[in-house]
Amino acid sequence: MKRLVELDVNGQRYDVIVSPRELLVDVLRKKVGTIGPKKGCGEGQCGACSVLLDGEPVVSCLTLAIACQGRKIVTVEGLAPAGRLTPLQQAFVEHGAIQCGYCTPGMLICAQALLDENPHPSEAQIRAALVGNLCRCTGYVKIVEAIQAAARGLEAGPVAAGAEPASARSTP
C-alpha cells in the first residue's frame, strides 16, 4: 500500500506518496527533485548516493523511503544552502578532487560526516571513512588532500584560494 510520508530534506518538508519498496534515492531524485545523490550501483556498493540521515551517512539506495518519516535528510545540495561552497566543497574544487564528479556528492557527504565527528582526522582515518565511496577518476589522492586541507582550514579559517596542496609531489 502506498503511504504519505513527510520527509525533511535539507530543512524543507516534503509530503511524498511512496510504495513500501521505494528507495530513498529514487524518491529524492524523482519526487523531491534533489538530483545530488547519484545511483551508481543501486546496491550500496559505490557510495555515490550517500546522504546524511539524522546526521549519519547512509547509502540512500539501501534505505527505504517509507522508513524516513520525519527524519532529517541532508543531501549534497543541503551542505551549502545559500549556494555558497562550504570550506570542504571549496577544498574539493581547489585541490582537483573532482574529475567526472559522479562520486563527488557521496564523497562530500561522507567527508563532511567525518569532519563533523572528528575535525582533525589522520590520513588513515580519512581513507577509512571513504572506504565505501568508490572513485574511478582520481585514485583518491586529491580527495584525501582536499579533506586534509579542509581540516586544516577548520583550525586556520577558510581554505585559502590557490593554496598548494600537500601532495606527494617530488622533484628529483
Partner: peptide, 10 residues
C-alpha cells in the same frame, strides 16, 4: 576546473 563548483554543489 570550470565545472567543479557545480559538481561540488550537486
Amino acid at each position: 576546473r570550470l565545472d567543479a563548483p557545480a559538481k561540488a554543489k550537486g
